[in-house]
Amino acid sequence: MSDTEERRGGLVGYVLLLPAGAWLTLFFVVPLVTLVSTSFYDPAGSLELGYRVTGQVTNYASVLSDYSEQFLRSLGYAATATLVCVLLGYPLAYAIAFKAGRWRNLMLVAVIAPFFTSFLIRTLSWQLILADQGWVVDTLQFLHLLGEDGRLLATPVAVVTGITYNFLPFMVLPLYASLEKIDPRLIEAGSDLYASPFTTFRTVTLPLSLPGLVAGTLLTFIPAAGDYINAQLLGNTRTQMIGNVIQKLFDGGSYPEAAALSVTLMAVIVVLVLAYVRRAGTEDLV
């Protein structure tokens, strides 16, 4: 800590913090509390008639029995997509950090660049790529990896592909950030001590990049679990995710049920994330 920092009092800190802190409290924390209380409303009410607070958990029981399938599917799709993101994102982040040389910044720009075309437009683009008469399906059919009447669009594969694609930068950037901090001499030391490249990777590079890996998985998995755009545009009615259901319930004005589902999703994610972070041993991540 430098002495300049020590001299600065806490009061100025609070003043600087106040506007953003107030905004986040008012429009992030208070809404979450409202969401929880809404989830206990009597579903028989409506916006016009008003709601009765029942204080019962009936909403939770009914949405969980009705939509557990979509729930599990969301978690499954998100987990699969996150795994594929690791498999694709790690080599890319590694290449940028260690092999790109003076092309490093350009490659980093290239990772974020696709972001700048709207999320929805990119997803629609995948609709085109995976379409029944598209070249991907043709190639796969030619290679007999896909049956004559097999298709990709409107299947779980398409949904997971879309999710993977859309959230890949969230994996690559944190991974790159932690790989970039690794001193290349540590890796050289590994090979000087006659460790095979694989052993060096397993015992030196991978553990040192763990914070990035954990951050990347979280930043990919969490938005992926709540996403419904990919399921809607690339899937069919049998690939609906929990986001589709929540959105539909809100559109239909069933606020209490929708709120109960949202709260459940948030709770499940918090539990999963805590378990995962504890397991990965990076509790001081945030």
Binding site: L35, L47, G243, Y255, S262, M266
Partner: peptide, 17 residues
């Protein structure tokens, strides 16, 4: 670290309430 659908729906819950 919150899914968008949760943030969006809680804001809506607030506005409606």
């Amino acid at each position: 670290a919150s899914p968008e659908i949760v943030m969006g729906s809680s804001l809506l819950a607030l506005f409606v309430a």
